[in-house]
Write a protein that binds this DNA or RNA. Structure first.
Lengths: 348, 348
DNA sequence: CTGAAAGCGCTTACAG
DNA sequence: CTGAAAGCGCTTACAG
């Protein structure tokens, strides 16, 4: 008999999962276990007749392969950690959704990690997640602790750093230039004739991409010979409510301001919504601009001028680059600028 | 020598992961592999001296346990699938965040699944995810395909059905009664003197929890001898923009309406933002109410009357119930009503 | 195209 | 408290 590979083993009372195993399928289909494995993972390498028998056995037994056994044997697992700095923010939800849709379609599982903008947490998370022998990894940003960098460089799987465009620290990168986005917004405000221009941001030490937007914003103003009138730094997470408070503060501290670039749309929308209550007309008394391109900005009055960041597309692109890396396909552009789009509307 | 368990094996050219293994740590610490395992998983069962040696070896080698080997050997894996119907919605983000925070703290990994409100996709997803031998599972809703139910009932791990309160189909439940929420809103509108009351919802066949709110809303109106004036059904996902369109439609189809309960805050906020453009005063011309309790509703003018659903708490609670189940601790209340809170504001 | 043997890196169950 | 043996359920590498 050709399938004596599937005999019962002694199995001294060890705990088994209870589920059907590849051995059960092999016995049912009267083939060797390895043939079952091939029928699943590389069907073309098995004769149609045997493939049919295996498929029937799988259906009859309700067989679901044990992923851990497979991953252990092949020392590679169809999982991909995606580490984001925040789960309080729609922005990262869209990145997650983009990556998910691509990975799930080819049978990869997303392992979601949240650092809350803490590089120490990122390092611990990454260490744990590497214990799953992931096929690849996606991490947010280009700034990591030395420990995280060392760990990822030692690791041999593909890795994509997302959110900001730049030279990859580890392997690959896809993102946008936040400096360029800030500069673009500065030039827009200048072109519209504003001259007493300020910036509002929250937690800029942690959200350093917002700080990069500020930096690009300021440089472009400088180049045009315009001084940045003020920078308001708030020490709480960005919310619509906080944007309203910021507006109040701007008008008490900087009553002559004629335009403000808010670090993101949440703050900017909050300012627009609060303005009528404060008797402030946007943009006549002060122009308001944001960043992200949240849908909400199109439904406030006046509509918000903002910069759209292609988050969904960035998530997808990162997953696609990773898959190429996993499959050993060439990735000609190891750093990809996903770009952004200025959307001038009524608020400026 | 007591550690002859750690001799080099023949290993005929098989692919190894390259990482340090438990055998490496054991050799380094001059103990048996099982001692390393115990030092990690049950430190109290190892003598302080040996524990110290093991810890030092782990640090020296940068050892990270291979999760797949552990999961395969113990036939249980520290992962928990969380299946949600949508990733386009902040609501589920908060549930995810709540569950994440509890599970991550005790070393469990969240496997995120998205069904896009498709029960067939749910079944496929669950089948794949069970291949990871998860410690437990969290699924959204109490309605599943027969196949999904059969699969989960056959499976022996703990499972929590979330989002809506009711008799668990599988194991445990935590959620809120959407019928009761609808009824509460109806009584609120009646108490404020409204009598020409309507409802707006989107994709009610899929988002059946919104349909449950409508059902409870209508029953409570009936009980008060008030007829539900209209139901507008829109066939696109709920967004702020769609809420504005809905308002327009209400005023052309039902010009005498004096109050509308929107299926969720996105729609309701959209209506409030669009109202001034249509020359409609809220609540004088028409009252607007929502559901979810998004922060945004507190910053529009007028502020939105809504029902707050404790999403973050629900995610946490589900994870806690699951952990209790995993640890074999008793869970006295297998179905938990997490409740909701009516927040009357200026829009009604 | 097919299979027997060996091994992935852990934990269980047993024995002291 | 400590360890040797066996096994979890797959895939790799070899051989035909």
């Amino acid at each position: 008999m050709e399938t004596d590979d599937t005999q019962d083993a002694p199995n001294k009372g060890r705990r088994r999962s209870g589920r059907a195993t590849i051995t059960d399928v092999a016995r049912h289909a009267n083939v060797a276990r390895i043939t079952v494995s091939r029928a699943i993972n590389d069907p073309g390498s098995v004769s149609p007749e045997r493939r049919r028998r295996v498929d029937a056995a799988i259906a009859a037994l309700g067989y679901v392969p044990n992923r851990h056994a497979g991953s252990l044997a092949s020392s590679m697992s169809p999982v991909v950690p995606l580490i984001v700095p925040s789960l309080s923010n729609t922005v990262f939800l869209e990145v997650i959704r983009g990556a998910q849709s691509v990975l799930e379609a080819v049978g990869y599982e997303l392992l979601l990690g949240n650092t809350d903008y803490d590089v120490e947490r990122e390092q611990k998370l990454m260490q744990t997640l590497l214990g799953w022998s992931p096929a690849g990894a996606i991490v947010s940003g280009l700034r990591h602790s030395d420990g995280t960098l060392a760990m990822l460089r030692r690791w041999d799987g593909p890795c994509v750093e997302i959110m900001e465009y730049g030279t990859p620290n580890i392997d690959m990168n896809v993102g946008l230039s936040h400096e360029a986005a800030g500069a673009t917004m500065a030039r827009h405000l200048i072109a519209r004739g504003y001259r007493r221009i300020g910036f509002v941001g929250t937690l800029l030490e942690w959200d350093y991409r917002a700080a990069q937007r500020l930096s690009g914003f300021q440089s472009a103003l400088d180049q045009a010979g315009i001084e940045l009138s003020f920078v308001e730094r708030l020490e709480a997470p960005s919310t619509v409510g906080l944007g309203g408070k910021a507006l109040k503060r701007i008008f008490s501290h900087h009553p002559d301001a004629d335009a403000t670039f808010f670090a993101n749309d949440d703050l900017a929308v909050g300012a627009i919504l609060e303005a009528p209550r404060l008797g402030i007309r946007v943009p006549d008394d002060m122009a308001v601009a944001g960043f992200n391109g949240l849908n909400l900005g199109n439904h406030v009055n006046p509509r918000l001028t903002t910069i759209v960041s292609p988050r969904l597309r960035m998530g997808r692109r990162a997953a696609e680059m990773l898959l190429a890396g996993i499959r050993g396909e060439p990735v000609p552009q190891r750093a990809q600028d996903i770009g952004f789009r200025l959307v001038p509307q009524e608020s400026t």
